[in-house]
């Protein structure tokens, strides 16, 4: 399926005048959900930037019906909401829109439970790599070396690999996406929408405030993360893994952009730009990440080109 953006109508995919910061990747992502899935959607949003982005009642700046819920409970509240719709014979997409903390830290238990139960929901982690809403504190998804207000000399641990953990749950659909590549994200949403069961999309969302870059560069930074090999784009459908077409070439290290190009745009990495050892650690991380991708590709194949057929059929 190919998205033709020219055919998408002019309409409010998000409501202007919301409380998002200028250059916010979350409102970009939310627009793509509406472009991909239309109006037959209810969002479940745990505490985070998107709780605030909605703005002040009785108005909401996100153009979807929303059930706001406490931090740790997004996946479980969504499970119940979906069950209610099923009980009433309504076919509605229940979509969780949770940050990296709400997904990988405080909300992880509920996420893991819902994934294991194969709840018929789409869970999107909008990953801005720290607790931005409370003022840029590190999360388990903050990458190595990044400055946050709780890691002043740079985080000492690497990013937790949530999509990989979700593949290990054996769910129906796992994908990674970046707000730098909207059509890829939209296509993935549309494929996910055609599958029943638990679907997980990990959306990289560079935050100008927390990552310390010019708000005009949100899309560019999101693209660079992919182009440097730091954030591979892939899909996993029913046991078949494949790299996304637009990002396939970055499997070859020679085709990747030097990671320094990504780092130097962001103030959160300022302190390690002239420390080659630190940069090297990030480069090693990229290498290891691609070893894992390689292993996933080799493990989750379908014989006789069946895998590609699965993707084309959706």
């Amino acid at each position: 399926m190919v998205v033709n953006i020219r055919k998408l109508p002019d309409r409010y995919y998000i409501m202007p005048g919301n409380a998002a910061c200028p250059g916010c990747p979350e409102t970009m992502g939310l627009r793509y959900i509406k472009m991909a899935l239309g109006d037959n959607v209810v969002l479940v949003i745990p505490a985070g930037c998107s709780s605030v982005i909605q703005g002040i009642a009785p108005r909401s700046g996100i153009n979807f019906p929303i059930l706001n819920i406490v931090f740790a409970a997004a996946a479980s509240a969504a499970s119940g909401l979906k069950a209610a719709f099923e009980a009433q014979g309504k076919d509605v997409h229940v979509v969780v829109w949770a940050g990296d903390g709400g997904t990988g830290d405080i909300g992880f238990q509920a996420l893991s439970g819902a994934a294991e139960r194969d709840e018929d929901i789409i869970y999107i982690c909008v990953d801005n790599e720290a607790y931005m809403n409370t003022g840029i504190q590190r999360s388990s998804l903050t990458p190595y070396g990044a400055w946050t207000t709780t890691t002043w000399t740079g985080k000492k641990e690497h990013k937790k690999n949530i999509p990989y953990i979700l593949i290990s749950h054996g769910v129906k659909y796992v994908a990674t996406a970046s707000v730098g590549y909207p059509t890829d994200f939209i296509e993935k949403l549309q494929r996910a929408a055609k599958i029943r069961g638990f679907r997980y999309i990990h959306l990289l969302a560079p935050c100008p405030i927390g990552w310390r870059f010019d708000p005009g560069l949100t899309a560019k930074v999101a693209q660079l993360a992919v182009q440097t090999g730091l954030f591979p784009l892939y899909e996993y459908i029913n046991g078949v893994f494949r790299l996304s077409p637009i990002a396939k070439k970055y499997k070859d290290p020679k085709k990747r952009k030097p990671v320094i190009e990504y780092l130097k745009l962001q103030g959160r990495y300022k302190h390690l730009l002239n420390k080659p050892d630190e940069v090297k650690k990030i480069e090693e991380y990229i290498e290891n990440l691609w070893h894992l991708i390689d292993a996933l590709e080799k493990t989750f194949t379908a014989e006789g080109g069946k895998g590609e057929a699965i993707y084309r059929s959706l």
Binding site: Y12, M15, P16, G17, N18, A19, Q54, G55, I56, A57, P58, R59, S60, G61, I62, N63, F64
Partner: peptide, 8 residues
């Protein structure tokens, strides 16, 4: 609330 312009 309901979706609306200018929530802030």
């Amino acid at each position: 609330s309901r979706p609306a312009l200018g929530s802030v």
